[in-house]
């Protein structure tokens, strides 16, 4: 482990200081309001010292549902865990709150495909033309969850969450290989791909989105997160392992 205090991105160097030193100007005028940023304005306030201390949080208030029913949540946890299971490296998707991440994503603009071209008509596409699906992501996902249970009951006479890990893998493999029934005319592998993508995002996206609990997803792969600078490390022929930092560390700057 390198000594953090020798790093350019160390906590003692704020973005504010950094930008001050960088001389980002045009004709002597500071560009873009970077220095007087939203986050820099109240840095010197002293009122907090006299304010009553907030009670320490023992639970994560973001770990609550916006979208799923409890059953859907548990099913998502179980399926995501098989995509990215707990192992010797560390926690799996369940412990990393990937299902909370997925819940939050499907509850928002992305879940209703707000930035996609959704005008019809929807024709059958060639493999090279991208997906042509009218069903919104939030609906495809919940329909896919229901299909997981249907296929589990058909194959093993039990719901997905009650199956052994190997049986769950068998069900997911069937979905990934289009060997499960279509979901309202959408191939089962399309749902599987959505589940896989969301799981990977849920374990590796910034914790601000609800997953990657305590940055443990990053720590497993020795990813240092969103530091301001790697100029000191980039030429080192030895691997330099740094503690992860997330976007919340940028808020004080």
């Amino acid at each position: 482990m390198a000594d953090n205090n020798t790093q350019a991105g160390k906590k003692g160097t704020t973005r504010r200081d950094f930008l001050k030193n960088s001389g980002l100007t045009v004709g002597g005028v500071v560009l873009g309001g970077a220095i007087g940023s939203l986050f820099g304005v109240n840095n010197t306030t002293t009122t907090q010292e006299t304010a009553p201390a907030a009670p320490a949080l023992t639970v994560n208030p973001a770990a609550a549902l916006m979208f799923f029913t409890p059953d859907q949540y548990q099913l998502t946890q179980a399926a995501a865990e098989r995509i990215y299971p707990k192992d010797d490296n560390g926690p799996g998707a369940m412990e990393l709150n990937a299902a909370i991440y997925i819940d939050h994503q499907l509850a928002g603009a992305w879940g209703i495909n707000s930035k996609e071209y959704m005008a019809g008509p929807f024709y059958k596409a060639e493999e090279t033309q991208g997906s042509q699906i009218r069903i919104l992501r939030k609906d495809l996902f919940t329909m896919g969850l229901a299909a997981l249970n249907t296929h589990s009951n058909k194959t093993f006479q039990a719901n997905f969450v009650d199956l052994e890990a190997e049986q769950q893998d068998e069900i997911l493999t069937a979905f990934s290989e289009d060997k499960a029934p279509e979901i309202s005319k959408v191939r089962s592998s399309i749902f599987f791909s959505l589940l896989r993508t969301l799981t990977i995002e849920g374990v590796y996206a910034d914790p601000l989105y609800g997953g990657n609990k305590d940055m443990q997803g990053w720590a497993m792969r020795k990813y240092p997160g969103t530091r301001l600078s790697f100029a000191q490390e980039i030429q080192n022929s030895d691997f330099v392992q740094l503690d992860p930092e997330s976007l919340t560390s940028h808020m004080g700057h």
Binding site: R15, G32, S37, F39, A205, D206, L208, Y209
Partner: peptide, 13 residues
């Protein structure tokens, strides 16, 4: 846009 738009730019998602 200016650089203040990029203050949370280290957000892969």
């Amino acid at each position: 846009r200016n650089t203040s738009d990029y203050m949370m730019a280290h957000d892969e998602l």
